[in-house]
Design a binder for these strands. Structure first.
Lengths: 135, 135
DNA sequence: CATATATCCGACTAAAATTATCGTATATCT
DNA sequence: AGATATACGATAATTTTAGTCGGATATATG
């Protein structure tokens, strides 16, 4: 219960790997996936998502790969979760747009609000935790 | 991501329902499942687990059902999670017995410790949140 | 004591979410 | 031109969670 997505772990490993590669031009997905034992295709997709969200920058072609846009202490865990298109959602009804929920108990539910508060706390924790702290 | 099990929600609804039924002798699974729109068989199983863990007491036979052993302010969220045989486990490697994990990165993993700390915080939150606060 | 009611419990099935893979296109360096 | 590497949508496999089924046991009541 309350599992974190593997994609998030992989993203963190990748950022750590790139960071520790120092000032080299680029680090390729292949190098990271080989070194960290992460499925190539999956990691590739994760990297692409992080590019779109401005966490890393890509370089096509021979000797291409990725570089970090910021140092790990300026990248937040919540940012990575968001970049991967994930979100912390403890219950089906705790979506941002409450009209979307089709829960039969929606109107009278006594649980949503308190669980929402717990979720908020976890969100806050994620938004304040830097990748630096994690790697 | 970080979803809470439906079983936990159902357990909370059931406890609330029994509590609000006042001093009646017993409340049956059927009554709760009908009123709260919870699958009967599933809720039955949940109730049985809570009996085994001393959260509620069962009464067999006609007019049987369940009663609370404690008031909601003396039942903790973590207790329910435990009773249902669930646990908060953010990553595969964060099991209580670390020798069980077969993660290839186990020895050198830099993530486990910090994620473990986040998990500890959430566990603490669960262990200190009473059902009273939730319902 | 027979019957109806309700819990008990393990095994099984279904559904959903997550993880992983595949094929093809695009960009860039030499 | 050829090799290398990212981009991206679609699909497959796996895992986890949710829900179902069948038969057993216990108890109140007529």
């Amino acid at each position: 219960m309350l599992k974190i997505a593997k994609s998030v772990e992989y993203a963190l490993f990748a950022i750590k790997y790139i960071h520790e590669s120092g000032n080299r031009e680029c680090v390729s997905v292949k190098e990271i996936s080989d070194s960290m034992n992460i499925p190539y295709e999956l990691l590739a997709k994760i990297m692409q998502r992080m590019v779109k969200n401005g966490i890393i920058t890509s370089q096509h072609g021979t000797n291409g790969g990725y570089i970090l846009n910021n140092k790990p202490d300026a990248i937040f865990l919540g940012q990575i979760v968001g970049a991967l298109g994930l979100k912390i959602q403890m219950t089906d009804c705790l979506v941002h747009d409450p009209t979307v929920s089709d829960c039969a108990r929606f109107k009278t539910c006594c649980l949503r609000s308190p669980i929402s508060k717990i979720q908020d706390k976890i969100n806050l924790l994620f938004d304040h935790t830097t990748v630096q702290e994690l790697i």
